[in-house]
Design a protein around this nucleic acid. Sequence first.
DNA 1: AGCACGCCGACT
DNA 2: GTCGGCGTGCTC
Length: 819
Amino acid sequence: MEIYAKVIINNNSSYTDNFFTYKIPNHLLDEVEIGHRILVPFGRSNKPIEAFVFDITNEKGEYDTKEIMDVLDQEPILRKSDINLIKWMKEEYICTFIEAIECICPKGFRVDTYKVIKLINDDAKELNEKERNLLNQIRKAKGSITLSKLKSKFDYSIDSIIKKMNQNNIIDIVWESKSIKNEKYIYTVKLNIPNEQIDDVIENLNKKRSFKQAQVMSFLRNNQNMAISDLIEALNVNRASIKSLEEKKFIKIEKINYYRKPTISYKVDKKDIILNEEQIYAVNLLKNSIYKEDKKPFLLHGVTGSGKTEIYLEIIDEMLRNGKDSIVLVPEISLTPQTIARFKNRFNDTIAVFHSKLSKGERHDEYRRVKEGNVKIVIGARSAIFAPCNNLGIVIIDEFHESSYKSDVSPKYNTIEVAKRLCKETNSILLLGSATPPIEEYYKCETGQYSKIELKNRANKNQMPEIQVVDMKEELNIGNKSIFSRALFDEISENLRNGNQTILFLNRRGYASFVSCRKCAYLFKCSNCDISLTYHKNTHSGKCHYCGYEVNIPKECPSCNSLYLKEFGIGTEKIQEEVKKYFPDARILRMDKDTTAKKGSHEDILNKFKNKEADILIGTQMISKGLDFPYVTLVGILSADMILNFPDFKSSEKTFQIISQVSGRAGRADLSGKVILQSYDVDHYSIQYAKNHDYKGFYNEEIKIRKIFNYKPFNSLMSIVVTGKNEKNVIKNIQKIYDGIVYLLRKRGIEDFEFILGPNPCPISKINMNYRWQILLKDLNIEIKLLKGIIKYICVQKRDAFLDSDINISIDTDPDSIL
DNA sequence: AGCACGCCGACT
DNA sequence: GTCGGCGTGCTC
């Protein structure tokens, strides 16, 4: 019986985004398995191309089949669960198979293909001069040479000559390929002769004037298993000498795997942690569910400082004891050496770390360490959810409300949804931890989709910090125009006197949010994006925080030549200046994207602050993540309104989250903390509930509003964004998409299209010279599967035929914001 | 996508 | 004739 494989071709075209059937030749029958990366001949020229086996069957299908050429890896690269995950992702996020596969397979596996010219008839007659020259070059290369090499030997084009000689059966043109795995090996050298013979060999070598080789031999006598590279460096010999020794069988060269170890060194004090009652209860709950069938995800709701990490460590330990793997996801910005050290202190080097700063090779090494079962714990940012664990036991997603868990490139997956899917597939525990769970996720505890675990107390029994809300309108009324309220000013002074530390939080970096002319209202805008430029005083320039565009701010208005240019709004740089002005003796650190651009500067700043080398830390979001500063007793939130006034349905939630997270930085150790929260809208419910540390209260209020306005979780939203350099074309294409959706819905008897908003320009209508238009699908009363199917048909399956190639389509099936 | 083929105009 | 530029169509 003939056996066939259904494969996905690694070719990012919508036309090839479906299964292709290849025959498995007899000699590969035992080797090819589902999930294998294989090589298949593709297209008219049978170019070798990488493909992934999704199914093995005896059904031939309606097409003629070609044979699989080769199997590229020993072990299948995709597991059964991966294949199911890929199929699910393709449907869920409307992407191609290959896009989903690329999430799971590390880059670094690659197949290089090239054409090779081979001589098949050496005594051809009646050749002209050019043909003879060509033939001679091929002869020089022993009858076989790559096309590109051959081309480089001539200063004129040889395409037609090759074609003609191929037709005349003088040469053959074949595709060849090389599999590149981006694996690094070390070659080590050791002696291959008994010790007694060494002296003789050295003597002989010296006689033949092979001094270098003799030197190597005598060196190896005392240093077995040297890496070749070290040997070459130590003795200043060349590779040829070593190779010659190998050929004479005096030495043996061995190839061993080498894992590039990402170097992160950071130590935290190892202290024994005794869990409190709440924590013990939580850990037991988790432990008891390990071998339960049909697990519900756990939502771990614990106030800041309630010791969620200790629970993670404890349950991971239990997993290790059960021989199971753990994946711990933390937000990218929290993936600091400090965080990693906490895990390494407990589990030593049995941890693989995935983060965005790893090189391709390093990432690949970490991937292999996991795949080969050498590590049982994976810690990383969102993409670590795809780590190739062999026996997954638990996925922990810390701070799971963080927006970085949502992918911003296609496929725009939501890590939590992927994790749910993965855990279901592998019967693993999913643990979602946060002090401020997203409203729509907390709602799932009420509907019974999640089991809730609550930690109500801080682990060190400290009180939550007192939050004092200051009305900035009132400050203005009494003539205080500074950015510090009287209360905040007093508290900072007091804190400085007592030698305690202060954190000041503001959600915007730079000096001022924008620069404009007071005479003609000219506004400095990015020339690539539809965004006003943020003023940076130290460089005296306007920077675009989207594309990095930077321009000098002149003295004169470019429009009316007046001198009335002025900056408006505040950023961290301005705060720093103001603090310097009012507290000239204070030692200040600033942490934002500008001061942490250099590698390692992030840690530098945090270490300095931790070591009390500064009194005040000014920062953006960056400072709000899981950092422990024992001497911080005061946190100032300079303007809570900046987030609140964002025109988005999640802005209240985000305000509550940020206030809670930032406040949590105050009073972590033995000192009690205080928070001053400045706002113009002090009565807003998100501020009031945050002030009282009342998540439940906030949730109850917010869920009502979500219900009234039909927002998440009561309804779903989808967005289609078309971007491109040519605005007319962008509009034309998004209109086509709109028309297509309407047309296909009409065919199914749907006549009410009010739920389709747009096409409209995106709120930020241009980024990086790309115009952006969107269609929003809201209040979806129609079946979501039908709609997804239609969008998939138009934007993926028929994309190349139906839409222009110079536009980009981005589909988000569950956007977190409508911006 | 990426490749090959084929049609056409330009050039020795 | 023949070179190469680009448009077209297909990929198990």
